[in-house]
Design a protein around this nucleic acid. Structure first.
Lengths: 135, 135
DNA sequence: CTGGGTGCAAAGTATTTGCATGAAC
DNA sequence: GTTCATGCAAATACTTTGCACCCAG
C-alpha cells in the first residue's frame, strides 16, 4: 500500500486510481487550479470527467485531505493539507510559495480587539517574485 | 455635489444613480455579496439588471473604488476602499468585522524569507464572534 | 457482496457580452 | 454632442446532480 493510499484512508476516502493521481499531482505541483488539475489528470485518464474532479475536490475538502487557497484576482488553487502556513504570490507570473510565519501574536491581538474566538488565520501576501523583480 | 459623487469621480467613474446607490449600500452595510447588493439595489431601482451590478462591481474594482474580500468557505464580499485593514469573520453567523493590525513586521520577515518584493498582505481571521461564542 | 466512485449528459448557477437606448458631463 | 452606462437577452463559464455501470474494500 503506497503513501497516498494510506493518506487517503486516514481521511476516510477510498483510494481510487483517480484520487491517487489527484494526490500525486497536488503533491508534485504544490498548488493547482481545477483547470490545471483537469489538464494533468487527462494525461493519465483520457476519459476522466470534470464532474469527477469536482466531486473529488469537494469531498477531499470536506474530509480535510486538501485545502482551498483563495487568492486575490486569481482563481482558487488547491493543496494537500499540511502544517498551517501562509502564501506568497507573484502578481506577475502567478507563482505561489508556501511560507511559515508565526501569526500567534497577531492572532492573539486580533482576538483581544475583536472579541472573537479565533482559530484560523489565512494570510496571502502579494508582490513580485525574485525573477519578476529583475525584468 | 454629494460625497459619493466626488468619491466616484476621484476614481474616474461617472456618477450615475445606480453607482451612487452601490456606494451608499456598501458604505452603510460594510461588506456585501453580489447577491445581497442586488437585492438592496432592487428596492431603489425596480428594473436594475444583474449585468449592471456586475459591470459596475468590475469597473469599480479596476478603478480601486472598491475591493473584493475573499473569505474561506463563503462567497466574496465587496467593500469601499479604505485604509488597509484585515478581516475577522464568524464561521457561524458570517459576521465580518474590520480590524486594524500592524502586519509590517510579518510582511518584512516574509519578504526576507521568500525573496519576494511584497506590497500587499491580505489576512482573514476565522472564528466565533462574541454572540456566537455564548450559544 | 456492498457501498461508494466513475463517466456521461443534463441541469443549475454565476458571470460576461452585444446591442439599442438613454443619461452624464 | 460625445462618451459611456443601462437593461435586456443571449452567450459563456463554472459547478452540481442523476443515473447506470463498475470497482475498492
Amino acid at each position: 500500500m503506497n503513501n497516498y493510499t494510506r493518506m487517503l484512508r486516514e481521511h476516510h476516502l477510498k483510494a481510487t486510481p483517480q484520487r491517487l493521481e489527484i494526490a500525486n499531482a497536488l503533491d508534485c505541483n504544490g498548488h493547482m487550479t481545477i483547470e490545471k488539475l483537469y489538464e494533468v489528470m487527462l494525461q493519465k485518464f483520457n476519459s476522466i470527467s470534470l464532474a469527477t474532479i469536482y466531486k473529488n475536490i469537494n469531498i477531499m475538502i470536506e474530509n480535510a485531505f486538501i485545502q482551498e487557497v483563495k487568492i486575490p484576482n486569481e482563481k482558487s488553487v488547491y493543496e494537500l493539507s499540511k502544517e498551517r502556513h501562509s502564501h506568497v504570490v507573484c502578481t506577475k507570473c502567478n507563482a505561489i510559495k508556501d511560507i511559515m510565519l508565526d501569526l500567534s501574536q497577531t492572532t492573539q491581538l486580533a482576538s483581544q480587539v475583536s472579541h472573537f474566538k479565533i482559530d484560523k488565520a489565512d494570510l496571502v501576501l502579494s508582490g513580485l517574485c525574485q525573477k519578476c523583480q529583475q525584468l
